[in-house]
């Protein structure tokens, strides 16, 4: 069985800043894979690159065996991949329903999209109650739910989710993970999720990549990494010599 997504030694930079160096990762059909790493590690850049939002200057990205380099984001989306970006990027002046409809247009089949929306709304009662609201008036948790539901409206095979827990209360974060895992079953989704911390994700993920300084520091099955020591090591880089002294003059 081939990988659904293969990232093959990509390098990404923004002007002079190199955000990813020789990053490789792969996600197989049906897996839940998580990328964790501190601020500025390059997690968002990795997901954005896969979704066609930023072009690597070296390396290759394949979705279902086909290279997506040079494709525009809307073309990548048509390969069955959907991104829930960091900060949710809800269309705040559109209604909740319109936000969902945007996701559905890609199907080109109104009836199917409408049926999808109804099925999804059964999972998101809070959104169902607020269909005619401007989406900008939703709470942070509701907006995150909407962002997930909207992405699922495109009927992706692979859902890329960038820090779904950002700025949300623990109870809400639990709900969101519950829904993501539920959707994974119902919609046969493969999940690639970014998080800053490993707490929750170790429970849910099949495999984990730890990213720091634009490089993959560690990868492996979540089951092998549960004790946390290896992750802490990769995440913070302790023990790597030489480490810049923390009390260096500012």
């Amino acid at each position: 069985m081939g990988a659904l997504v293969e990232v093959d030694g990509i390098h990404v930079r923004y002007g002079d800043l190199v955000a990813l160096r020789d990053v490789s990762l792969s996600v197989a059909e049906g897996e839940v894979v998580c990328i964790i790493g501190p601020n500025g590690a390059g997690k968002s850049t990795a997901l954005t690159a896969i979704a066609g939002g930023v072009a690597p200057y070296a390396g290759d990205i394949r979705v279902g065996g086909v290279s997506v380099l040079g494709l525009r984001p809307e073309q990548v989306a048509r390969l069955g991949l959907s991104l829930v970006p960091e900060g949710r990027h809800i269309f705040g002046t559109l209604t909740v329903e319109e936000n969902l409809r945007i996701g559905g247009y890609i199907q080109g089949d109104r009836a199917a999209a409408k049926a999808d929306m109804e099925r999804l709304l059964a999972l998101f009662p809070r959104l169902a109650e607020r269909l005619r609201y401007p989406a900008g008036r939703l709470s942070g948790g509701e907006q995150q739910m909407l962002a997930v539901a909207r992405a699922v409206m495109t009927r992706p095979r692979l859902l890329l989710v960038d820090e779904p827990s950002l700025g949300l209360a623990p109870r809400i974060i639990d709900q969101i993970y519950e829904i993501l895992l539920d959707l994974r079953q119902r919609a046969a989704l493969t999940l690639l999720i970014n998080e800053q911390s490993s707490n929750r994700i170790l429970k849910h993920a099949d495999r984990i990549y730890v990213l720091r300084g634009g490089r993959v520091q560690l990868e492996g099955p979540a089951a092998d990494l549960r004790d946390g020591e290896a992750i802490r090591h990769a995440y913070f880089g302790f023990g790597e010599a030489p480490v810049a002294p923390l009390d260096a003059p500012a």
């Binding site: 979704a51 984001p73 809307e74």
Partner: peptide, 8 residues
């Protein structure tokens, strides 16, 4: 950009 990610 977000619209493009959704296939627009």
């Amino acid at each position: 950009r977000m619209a493009q990610y959704l296939g627009v």
